[in-house]
Computed example of a mutant assay.
Amino acid sequence: MNCGYVALIGRPNVGKSTLMNHLLGQKLSITSRKPQTTRHRILGIKTTAAGQAIFMDTPGMHSDEKKVLNRYLNKTADSTLLGVDVVIWLLDGLYWHDYDEKIFKKLERAGLPVILAINKVDKIKDKDAVLKFFAEAQQKYPFQHIVPVSALKNTNLDVLEQHIMALLPEAEPIYPEDQITDRPERFFAAEIIREKLTRRLGDELPYALTVEIERYEEFPELCKIYAAILVERDSQKSIVIGKQGEMLKKVGSEARVDIEKLIGQKVYLELWVKVKKGWSDNERALQSLGFIDFGD
C-alpha cells in the first residue's frame, strides 16, 4: 500500500477546503465565499484499497501580515510543507497572481513532487486557452501533473486522486481505516458555528470574530455545547446578536443542525457574544483560543 501526507496549498479562497471535503466524501473543513475562512491546519484521512492519503487543508498563503493572526495563518500554511510527501497547488483560473511567485520559491525550497490543479474548470469555455496555460505552467515549474478539476462538481477528482496515490511512498497506513481526522468533535463544533456566522454576516465582520467552546458535555441521549462568540468591539457585538436576537438565533439553529449531523446525536447549543478587544493581534490571546500550530 501507499501512504503519506498531502498538502493542499494556494491563495485564499481558491477552493482548497471544498476540494478536500469532496475528496474525502465528507465535510470537515468549513467553507464560505470569504477569504481566510480556513484558519487552522485540518487533517482529512482517506483510506482506500490503494492506500491512505492524509490531506492537510491549510489557510491560504497571502501577503498581508499586518496582524498576529495574519502571520499565524501564513506560518501555518508554510509549516505544512514540512514533512509532507505530495503537494497539491490549487489555482482558481488560468492566471497567476503576484504572490504566486513566492509560492514558487517556497516549493523550490521544499523540493517535493507538486500537482497543479486548476479549479472551476467547468466555467472555462475556451479549451485552447486551457492547453496554452498548461504548456506555460510546465515551463514555469516541473509539475508532476496538471489536472483541470471542479471541486464543487467532482470533475476529474478521481484522476487527481489516482495521481496522488501513485506519488505517495510505499508504507503501511498511519491511521485506522475508519478514522477521518485527528481533530476532536468540539473543534468542529466551533468551526461550524464560525461558518454560519461568516456566511450570515457577509462582509461586515467575519475576520473580527472567533468562537470558543467553553463547555462540551456528552450524555447518552444529548450533547450540550456552550459556545462564546468573541468579537473585538461593542459595535460588533450588536451586529452578531441582531435585532431582538434574531441573528444569533438563526446562527444557532443552523449550526445545531450541522453539528447533529456531524456527531450523530441530538444537540443542545447555547451561544452568547463576548467582547475580547484585540484578540486577533495578541499572541497570548490567540494561543488561548487554540491557534498554537505555528510549526508543530
Rank of each mutant, 00 (worst) to 15 (best):
A7P: 02
I9Y: 04
I9A: 04
N13R: 04
H22F: 04
K34H: 10
Q36M: 10
Q36N: 15
T37G: 06
G44S: 06
T47W: 07
T47H: 09
A53G: 03
F55E: 00
M56W: 02
P59H: 05
K66P: 04
V68W: 07
V68K: 11
N70F: 11
R71A: 06
N74L: 14
L82N: 14
L82G: 12
G83L: 10
I88T: 01
L90W: 02
D92N: 13
G93T: 07
Y95R: 14
Y95E: 08
Y99K: 11
I103G: 02
R109P: 08
A110D: 05
G111C: 07
V121M: 07
K123T: 14
D128Q: 08
A129Q: 12
V130E: 02
K132S: 13
F133A: 01
F134E: 03
A137P: 06
A137L: 04
A137V: 04
Q139D: 13
Q139S: 09
P148D: 01
L152D: 03
N156D: 00
N156Q: 02
L157I: 02
D158T: 00
D158S: 05
Q162N: 11
M165I: 03
A166W: 00
A166E: 02
L167W: 02
L167E: 00
L167A: 04
P169N: 06
P173G: 06
Q179T: 14
Q179V: 15
R183S: 10
I193D: 08
E195Y: 06
L197D: 06
L197K: 09
T198P: 05
R199W: 09
R200T: 15
V211L: 13
E218N: 12
E221Q: 14
Y226G: 13
A227P: 12
I229C: 05
R233H: 15
V240K: 09
G245L: 07
M247L: 11
L248T: 12
K249H: 13
K250R: 15
G252I: 08
S253D: 15
A255F: 01
I259K: 04
G264S: 12
Q265A: 09
K266P: 06
Y268N: 12
V273Y: 11
V275H: 08
K277L: 14
R284C: 06
A285P: 02
F291E: 03
F291R: 01
D293H: 11
D296F: 07
D296M: 07
D296C: 08
